[in-house]
């Protein structure tokens, strides 16, 4: 591994940070100087309209999209420019938009792939048991093809699969999308439990009210720029946020 010297500022408890990140797709620029951070043990939410750049921000953190400028650091180490498969090994996992379950692999195979970066079979088996404890329905469906699960079950599988790499920070993209309301509550409750066990979370959500109720802090993104940053409670009470994102 080639250790990049780290000239930027460091705060000890900041786990994941984006500093002035620009990114885009071909000639289209999706992010303009995004700066945000996630501290150890925090749930941070990124809210904003469709196309504001929420998903691109998460894809940059995972290395699927490479920033054109700016820096992304994880535990102080620069990770921007590294390929996606290498970033997972640092302890960053993602529950991607639309879940991206492997449709023709079984639930068990999907989970095992989540542990692709790990090698100890006993520890992997323990992680699978943990996923089954969090989401018992997955245990019932373990031999079923991922593509045959309901939207909510697929979301649970996507979360379970992401946890299989033993991440320190979990990036979640729209976990409520296409999921029945009762299951959404169950999934958000699980995120809270995982966070209490020490997992840091960066959560992107359309359902801003639900996200801000769960999160410690929040950022508001508009057309590729961070326009607000505050405690989640204060954002929830902010008239501008209420008008634009909470439908009041």
């Amino acid at each position: 591994m080639n250790e990049t010297p780290d000239p930027g500022p460091r705060t000890p408890d900041i786990l994941l940070s984006l500093e002035n990140v620009d990114a885009g797709y071909g000639p289209i620029r999706a992010l303009h100087g995004i700066t945000l951070n996630v501290r150890a043990g925090e749930i941070v939410t990124l809210i904003g309209a469709n196309g504001a750049g929420k998903t691109t921000t998460l894809l940059c953190c995972s290395g699927i999209v490479t920033p054109t400028s700016g820096a992304i650091r994880f535990a102080g180490q620069a990770i921007h420019g590294q390929p996606a498969h290498a970033i997972v090994r640092h302890g960053i996992a993602q529950v991607p938009e639309g879940r991206k379950i492997f449709p023709r692999l079984s639930v068990l195979e999907n989970l095992r792939l989540g542990a692709f970066t790990r090698s100890d079979p006993t520890e992997i088996a323990a992680s699978i048991d943990h996923a089954f404890t969090l989401f018992p329905i997955l245990a019932e469906r373990r031999h079923q093809a991922g593509g045959t699960l309901s939207g909510g079950e697929q979301q649970m599988l996507a979360i379970g699969r992401a946890l299989m790499s033993k991440p320190r920070v979990l990036l979640m993209d729209e976990p409520s999308m296409g999921v029945a309301p009762l299951l959404v509550l169950k999934i958000f409750e699980t995120i809270r439990t995982l966070n209490r066990e020490g997992l840091s979370v960066l959560l992107v959500e359309q359902n801003a009210r639900l996200a801000l109720k769960l999160a410690h802090r929040g950022y508001v993104i508009e057309t590729g720029r961070i326009v607000m940053e505050d405690d989640a409670k204060r954002l929830l009470a902010d008239p501008k946020v209420q008008e634009a994102y909470l439908g009041e």
Binding site: I64, P83, H85, Q94, P96, K100, F102, L105, F116, T117
Partner: peptide, 22 residues
């Protein structure tokens, strides 16, 4: 494990990268 990784890449290359597969 490698065979399963092959099937994963065939079914969704982006998700496969997120699993740590090169």
């Amino acid at each position: 494990r490698l065979g399963t990784a092959m099937r994963a890449v065939a079914q969704n290359p982006t998700a496969a990268q997120l699993m740590g597969i090169d």
